[in-house]
Design a protein around this nucleic acid. Structure first.
Lengths: 141, 141
DNA sequence: GAAACTTACATGCACGCGCATTGGATGTCA
DNA sequence: TGACATCCAATGCGCGTGCATGTAAGTTTC
């Protein structure tokens, strides 16, 4: 079992495709309708929010964010532009290297992010939890 | 193990994202550069080719194809238009229900599909095979 | 059999993406 | 200091996608 024969590889790919599409479509829809956020936009907030949790003041360099996402440099640039227009994020020049930009969560951005987090988590739990599992998915932070 | 706690669900989603993006990007690139086919286009050929293998003459109804793909009706329509312009596929009206279209592989389409199949399989094997596996991935049809 | 509804497919439109290019800031070497 | 390579981010462009809509064909109801 767990072999790499043609059939198995195809089946594995089909399953990956199924999970990916179902999950990302619902993520997109839920985040959009409930919080007016696209999936890419939320993911940027997620990285900023996580960094912020480390007491790093919610800053992150564009390049570092790009490295953590499956998004081209140009797409990230535009995603950040959208977030900036929505007032959720601010660009700030880096003192050390003026080629680079820092990105910072605004209070409004943090608020929106915290509101959207449960929605995000709920969709993941719904699609990625094995049915027979006996854990209490909705009982944690 | 295999629980649905926050951390586990996030890790599972990260892994799915990683596998999906790496695989689909390379599929797209390889199919495009080697066979001048987009991923969606190949997937349509795959369905037609598979049906054809059943001696069903390589026909399939648009609706049936749509049901097997993670693609909207409009996107499928345009994908088929591209395939038709490339001469790989023909649309044929259905006798029974003139709203419906059959889709058929042309000889050229079958040829292109057969040429692309190994490329497709190779990418899947590369990304979806567990490293420690002891099977001979490249030895099968 | 006419009207109302449903289904199959195509198309107008807006949007997000990747690629290629540009422009500005650094770094390097002579 | 000047010339050149490198790096970061923004932008022009084309493309594929989904949503909403349009058109034609089939189905249902009376």
């Amino acid at each position: 079992m767990e072999a790499g024969s043609d059939v198995d590889v195809c089946a594995k790919w089909s399953e990956t495709l199924r999970v990916y599409h179902n999950t990302s479509c619902e993520l997109e829809n839920e985040l959009q309708s409930r919080h007016d956020l696209g999936l890419s936009e939320f993911e940027v907030l997620l990285i900023l929010g996580r960094t912020c949790g480390d007491q790093a003041e919610g800053k992150a360099k564009m390049k570092d964010i790009e490295a953590e996402m499956y998004l081209s440099q140009s797409a990230l640039s535009r995603t950040v532009t959208r977030l900036e227009k929505a007032g959720l994020v601010t660009r700030a020049a880096c003192d050390f290297d003026r080629r680079a930009n820092f990105l910072m969560l605004t209070p409004s951005g943090r608020e929106r992010f915290e509101a959207a987090k449960p929605t995000h988590r709920a969709v993941l739990v719904k699609h990625l939890t094995v049915p027979g599992d006996s854990q209490r998915a909705e009982a944690c932070s």
